[in-house]
């Protein structure tokens, strides 16, 4: 117990040692310079990144260091696929972005607002409204129908009226091809259908960024397709900013603007999909991609 507290204090001191995030304009310009060759994203002039992760470090229980030093910028409308072996910290990084995990050190900025370190619960809730998340295990609310699942965030958090929320819910369910299942309980849906409802639930909040943590890993192969199609549609027609942790190489190659390879708590390599897949710069990336194929 004492050790834990000590570790926390040390981590906080460590965080202060890292230089604070730069002025938004300067940082955006630097990030642009760094990223322009790494992504298929078409930059607009004076564009600022949506998500900015700088020197992110995460330690569990004061000992297991999961994220060592993660740096990543994500631009509005960009689709970033995160690859990496199991245990490399992909989920942890994703969960740090919407503060399901508290970063130990470093900075995360959403729309140039720093979220690390000083937020109260109300600000955290506000932040999470703007960051949708889709989980590997769906995590639908089993006591609510598909429609109810999509509505509840709108009515309780966004304080929309029932009618408004219902209209939006039906629109989103239609978008994922499940209009006819609106009144089904999660238990009456297949895994693929459940995951599509979960995507509709996240999209209905109209977040700035959607986070996907291996959305198809718990699915049978024949159900993966439908979910990926929905995600592709969101990326290509919805213009949604997405960070997708996935093992679906085909999806990453076709849909991603940028592919990020993580290992051992750091971003080892990132770049345009064809660059990373066809000409990996690092041996570990090549090895990983080889093992997947």
């Amino acid at each position: 117990m004492f050790d834990k507290a000590k570790a926390r204090v040390e981590a906080r001191q460590e965080a202060r040692r890292v230089p604070p995030a730069l002025d938004a304009e300067v940082a955006a310009a630097q990030a642009h310079e760094r990223d322009k060759g790494l992504t298929k994203h078409s930059f607009e002039p004076h564009e600022h990144p949506c998500v900015r992760i700088e020197h992110l470090m995460k330690t569990f229980d004061g000992e297991t260091q999961v994220l060592t030093d993660v740096n990543l910028t994500v631009w509005p409308g960009e689709v970033v696929c995160v690859l990496g072996p199991s245990g490399s910290g992909k989920s942890t990084m994703l969960r740090c972005i919407n503060l399901l995990e508290t970063p130990t050190a470093g900075h995360i900025l959403i729309e140039d607002n720093e979220i690390t370190g000083h937020l109260g619960t109300r600000e955290v809730n506000k932040l999470r409204q703007n960051l949708g998340m889709v989980f590997q295990s769906f995590n639908l609310f089993p006591h609510l129908s598909a429609k109810g699942n999509v509505m509840i965030g709108q009515t309780k958090v966004l304080k929309k009226s029932k009618a408004e929320a219902e209209a939006e819910a039906l629109k989103q369910l239609e978008a994922v091809g499940l209009l006819d299942r609106a009144d089904f309980k999660p238990a009456q849906l297949s895994g693929g259908q459940q995951q599509r409802v979960a995507i509709a639930r996240a999209v209905a909040m109209h977040p700035d960024v959607l986070l996907f943590d291996e959305p198809t890993s718990a699915l049978d192969p024949e159900l993966v397709r439908g979910v990926l199609d929905v995600m592709r549609d969101l990326a290509e027609n919805g213009g949604m900013t997405m960070i997708v942790v996935t093992h679906e190489m085909g999806f990453a190659r076709e849909v991603a603007d940028r592919v990020v390879f993580m290992e051992g708590g750091v971003v080892v390599e990132q770049g345009k999909p064809e660059d990373v897949f066809d000409h990996p710069q690092h041996a570990r990336t090549a090895e990983f991609l080889g093992s997947i194929k």
Binding site: N98, L100, M133, L140
Partner: peptide
Amino acid sequence: PQGQYEAAASLGMGHLQ
């Protein structure tokens, strides 16, 4: 399951909600 808390949190719900 913990996932229920996380799903609710990811929608921006507070503890009481």
